[in-house]
Design a protein around this nucleic acid. Structure first.
Length: 328
DNA sequence: AAATAGCGCAACCGCGCGATA
DNA sequence: ATATCGCGCGGTTGCGCTATT
């Protein structure tokens, strides 16, 4: 059943907002806060629908908006996040403080897409456009303007693991309850690494780091300077064959595209890979930690302590997944 | 100077989802 | 169990500015 437009039923204003309307909305929200948007227009004295008010506030009036040109760091981050998340603008925007999903979407469509295409990169797949890249020919080979060439040292690379095979009688697996996280990490790797390579990957446990807990208050969003930790992952797929090659993502070469170590995690429900949480890597003592920005899909208890070693130790026994944290 | 093409951006639209009656 | 409502999201549209002819 087609729904009527929220503005069509009543005689509500549409189009550009006047300064007076902005003022009314701004004054109302700053005074009473964001609550039920459908009641905002009436209470603020506006001839608009709630949806329109919400959009105007989020995209324009919010005081924490950054505005202005995107920095090179922001640009790199958007490209990297888009590679992982696709057109999930809201998720991408959540990692760029002061930027809105609409702003990023517009920036992508008007600038970044063209920039990548100019460099012979398909903006949807982030893979080189083979036929076109040949056409770009000598220009492309000789210049260093290609984002992926510039970022070469930062893009995910897969090398042979240094880890040993797990002894058959390994019984270390204290935390089965964290399995959902392990499943998430497994999915993370599948999405970030070349999927085919992932499925051929088997892994082993050589060492299980001691467990460390982080307090909830330490799990907030961190400044970019914090994320220079080197983290090594090693993954095993249940459905894989008996291949014994191991995989390491070395975060020195890195999952991320700039100084923020950011990774995407499919939601806890491992069947649904269409929704992601974004997490940060950080060093904690001798071990790396993953910190997840809190949101609805992560319970308070889960946020209190998300330790790679905990979660993945749990998965080790299950035979599905392991992560190793590199000592610095 | 006028016409028009191109571009960036703000805002709208329709859909899906979760909450609630 | 179903209908309705509100919200959030991604896609799309169209306005206004600037560059080009």
């Amino acid at each position: 059943m087609a729904r009527h437009s929220c503005c069509a039923k009543q005689k509500l204003r549409k189009g550009l907002w006047s300064p007076e309307e902005d003022e009314k909305l701004y004054n109302y929200i700053t005074r009473f806060g964001v609550g039920c948007w459908s009641s905002v227009p009436k209470l603020a004295g506006l001839q608009r629908c709630g949806k329109s008010c919400r959009l105007r506030w989020i995209n324009y009036l919010r005081p924490d908006l950054k505005r202005g040109m995107f920095s090179q760091e922001e640009e790199d981050l958007i490209i990297h996040l888009h590679k992982i998340l696709g057109n999930r603008w809201a998720q991408i925007a959540s990692q760029l403080p002061g930027r809105t999903d609409n702003e990023i979407k517009n920036f992508w469509n008007s600038c970044l897409k063209k920039k990548l295409m100019k460099q012979g990169i398909d903006p949807q797949t982030h893979q080189p456009i083979i036929s076109q890249s040949q056409n770009f020919g000598s220009n492309n080979n000789n210049n260093n303007n290609n984002y992926y060439e510039q970022q070469q040292f930062k893009t995910p690379t897969i090398t042979q693991t240094i880890f040993q095979e797990v002894p058959e009688n390994n019984t270390t697996s204290p935390l089965k309850t964290h399995l959902p996280f392990a499943v998430s990490y497994q999915s993370l790797l599948r999405d970030i690494i070349n999927p085919n390579q992932y499925l051929q990957t088997s892994m082993s446990v050589s060492e299980l780091p001691s467990l460390e807990n982080l307090e909830r208050e330490n799990c907030g969003i961190l400044s970019s300077e914090c994320f220079s930790q080197s983290i090594m992952f090693s993954a095993e797929s249940k459905e894989c064959s008996t291949s014994s090659s191991n995989t390491v993502i070395n975060n020195n070469s890195s999952i991320n595209s700039n100084s923020n170590n950011i990774a995407a995690f499919p939601w806890e429900n491992s069947d649904d890979h269409s929704k992601y949480e974004l997490g940060f890597f950080e060093q904690a003592g001798n071990y790396g930690m993953i910190k997840i920005e809190g949101s609805s899909s992560w319970g308070e208890e889960q946020l209190k302590s998300i330790s790679l070693s905990d979660d993945l130790t749990a998965a080790a026994d299950d035979g599905s997944f392991d992560v190793f944290l590199q000592h610095m």
